[in-house]
């Protein structure tokens, strides 16, 4: 087995195992830590595919932002060693079978499909290229979604502050 192949299988196994632990473990803090490891391994997969910028964004936003936010909200809303209540076994089994069926369906689709390989020369996805395309209003530019997403982010941040603000009534 080639070393590159081995690294891919290692990353893939870590992603799947840690995410499975994150959704099945009883302790909610352990779940958050497993989620952290799963997201770091997804970033490793981006590094493996040579998408360094996406990997950096993944680490900064997910690992540094969202997981820390989740941990803070856990500390605000939970007693430390509180275990999650288990679901009824028949509902768990039903969900498991449903997910297994969905996975088997998509798995068979992927296995049977022949992806056409391209002979295009790969474009250099450097940070300079990304920044130029992001603000490019010409053909293939992304300035409109960039602006829309920036307004959305501002609205979401102000909205979340407004929602979480303590009012006099329920203070």
């Amino acid at each position: 087995m080639q070393i590159a192949e081995f690294i891919f299988y290692l990353i893939a196994t870590m992603i799947l195992v840690f995410s499975m632990l994150a959704v099945t473990t009883k302790n909610i803090f352990h779940a958050a830590i497993y989620l952290l490891f799963s997201l770091i391994n997804v970033a490793a997969l981006y590094f493996y595919l040579n998408f360094e910028f996406i990997a950096a964004v993944q680490i900064v936003v997910y690992v540094g932002g969202i997981v820390v936010l989740i941990l803070f909200s856990l500390f605000l809303t939970h007693k430390v060693d509180l275990d999650l209540p288990a679901m009824s076994w028949h509902r768990t089994l039903l969900t498991f079978l449903l997910c297994l069926m969905g996975f088997a369906f998509t798995f068979s689709l992927v296995i049977m499909n022949q992806f056409e390989s391209t002979d295009h020369l790969p474009v250099d996805l450097s940070v300079a290229y990304i920044g130029r395309q992001m603000l490019n209003y010409g053909d293939g530019g992304f300035v409109l979604p960039f602006e829309v997403v920036s307004v959305l982010l501002l609205a979401a941040l102000i909205g979340s502050i407004a929602v979480a603000l303590k009012t006099k009534k329920n203070a």
């Binding site: 996406i54 964004v57 997910y62 969202i66 391209t118 295009h120 979604p145 997403v149 909205g159």
Partner: peptide, 26 residues
């Protein structure tokens, strides 16, 4: 590989996921 569309959509999805997490937690 000759275009960067998937990369840009990934960036936008990450931004929207961050906004969604902030609103959900509040």
């Amino acid at each position: 590989p000759h275009k960067g569309d998937g990369l840009f959509f990934t960036i936008f999805i990450i931004v929207i996921a961050a906004a969604e997490a902030a609103v959900a937690i509040s």
